[in-house]
């Protein structure tokens, strides 16, 4: 019998708690595949956020630390400074990273902290039940923008990759999506690069993953993926925003 498909070693056997159609599962898998491919599970320490991925520490087989809301880049900084030869990643959502944790991510980036950040942007606060996120689109209806996000009172969405790539510090900033096979393949390559950069001591690498939230968007999984393609990606264009190794 030939095994053609199996769970990455870096994922535990715990059953994921994510909603049907949620793409966190895919992103977890891509992270685990990168860890497996690079053979660094035994040296990896992950930092889980507050948000839907709060229990990521149950899913990754490497050592894990649970951080306070938004503070994952600071916690990851402490771990990496303590153990410079380890591989440290933080997994954060949009409320965590782009709202409450904006200071921590900007400063980790500008220090070119040699860590890897997986930033999952699904334009909503999922775990608390669908409130407006810093990345919610103009007009997007959420629990706390029931008449649609009014940019005059709630401001505009934050494009994190563009923002961070304006800094001199970071090594690598890219935005990917996981709404179709082609994009998933591209995301896999990009996440692996973000980990490899760290192993090669190049510095701060962030991959923004445009993701979906069928439950809180009030859509079927299929419709949610179409929303990603037709509404999210036009606002959050995919691509590499900064890659210093390519600049040289």
């Amino acid at each position: 019998m030939t095994v053609v498909f199996e769970k990455p070693h870096a994922l535990t056997d715990a059953e994921l708690h994510y909603c049907p159609g949620c793409t966190h599962g895919i992103i977890h898998r891509l992270v685990a595949e990168a860890i497996d491919t690079l053979g660094v599970e035994g040296d990896t320490i992950g930092v889980a956020p507050v948000g839907c991925a709060v229990m990521a520490y149950n899913y990754f087989r490497c050592d894990m630390v649970e951080a306070a809301h938004g503070r994952a880049p600071a916690v990851a900084t402490g771990i990496k400074r303590s153990l410079p030869d380890s591989v440290v990643f933080a997994y954060q959502g949009d409320g965590d990273l782009a709202s409450i944790g904006m200071a921590e991510i900007v400063h980790a980036a500008t220090r070119n902290e040699n860590i890897t950040i997986i930033f999952v942007n699904n334009a909503i606060y999922g775990m608390t039940g669908g409130q407006m996120a810093p990345t919610s689109l103009p007009g997007q209806v959420t629990q706390t923008s029931p008449y649609g996000r009014d940019v005059l009172t709630a401001g505009y969405p934050i494009r994190v990759s563009e923002l961070l790539s304006s800094l001199d510090g970071p090594e690598f900033i890219a935005r990917v999506a996981v709404n179709n096979v082609r994009n998933v393949r591209e995301a896999k390559k990009t996440i692996e690069k973000a980990f490899r950069n760290q192993i090669e001591k190049k510095g701060f690498s962030l991959v923004e993953v445009v993701s979906s939230c069928p439950t809180n968007w009030g859509m079927t999984p299929q419709k949610a993926l179409e929303f990603v393609e037709n509404s999210m990606i036009p606002y959050y264009p995919l691509g590499v925003y900064k890659d210093r190794s390519r600049e040289d």
């Binding site: 320490i45 930092v47 630390v65 951080a67 306070a68 503070r71 600071a74 916690v75 990851a76 900084t77 402490g78 771990i79 990496k80 400074r81 303590s82 153990l83 200071a103 921590e104 900007v106 400063h107």
Partner: peptide
């Protein structure tokens, strides 16, 4: 050793949390 002037007291204590997680004095 490591000296780091953090961006805020909040960041500083969370960096402390990170190092403490690794078992070192901080």
């Amino acid at each position: 050793g490591v000296f780091l002037q953090a961006e805020s007291e909040i960041a500083a204590i969370n960096m402390v949390y990170g190092v403490a997680s690794t078992g070192k004095r901080v």
